[in-house]
Design a protein around this nucleic acid. Structure first.
Lengths: 119, 119
DNA sequence: TCAATAATTCAAGTATCATTGAATTAACAC
DNA sequence: GTGTTAATTCAATGATACTTGAATTATTGA
């Protein structure tokens, strides 16, 4: 068990960082952050970002496997949502054990984005 | 001008994310975070992490160009330090315009690691 | 059932990045 | 100067990832 809520391990952190280190995926994720907490569908994202459907699907799958977005079937379309908490966990992992804990204010103190309520 | 201190652009964010999305570089950066604010030298990092000198140099250069570490010549060795603020800026960029600003607590509120004082 | 929409999967080509060992530059001590 | 340590650069290899168009699965409506 970990001391806080969601401690990351290295492979998980690398998957998330690699997923975001790509122009189209970074755009997709930031758009989904902007559209939080409702999220969006692939068709809407294709229209908004001008990415080819097959390529968007590939990128969404990468973001999904990295735990940065969630997916939920809704009729014949699929709703994707940004997982804000993944960013907070990532920042916490990067700054973990900062200054070997000697400096008082070195705790992560993750950013907060309360998703209001799910539609 | 930007509203806050250090607003990132997409290429800068991608460079930082790509730099961290690599096993050895992630280890190096987290070690430097742990050794903040004093930092470390390549020789010490070679001993601590078991990475080949030429490869470590390549990775440090990548982290340096991404703005994640700083370098300072000290005698015949070089001191590298983690740039904690880069992580805060990155988290802020990822969560920028969260929920389109509609939810009250959607502000970035970057994690804090005060580097005490420089040696 | 048939047609249409939503989204994904597949295979192929291209580009990019990590890694290694040898060679190179720079700084210090004698 | 000579030798030693610290760190980097260079060239070449191997692996990984992005992109594209066509084919496929699943769902809805007439």
């Amino acid at each position: 068990m970990s001391t806080t809520s969601a401690e990351l391990d290295a492979p998980t952190a690398i998957a998330a960082l690699a997923a975001l280190a790509q122009e189209s995926r970074l755009e997709i994720f930031r758009k989904l952050v902007e559209l939080a907490p409702d999220g969006s569908t692939p068709t809407e994202l294709v229209d908004a970002l001008g990415i080819a459907p097959a390529l968007l699907s590939f990128h969404l799958k990468t973001l999904l496997h990295a735990g940065l977005v969630s997916s939920e079937h809704s009729g014949r379309s699929i709703r994707y949502r940004a997982q804000i908490g993944a960013v907070q966990a990532l920042a916490g992992y990067l700054l973990e054990n900062c200054c070997a804990g000697e400096a008082a204010q070195c705790a992560p103190a993750a950013p907060a984005c309360v998703p209001a309520r799910r539609k």
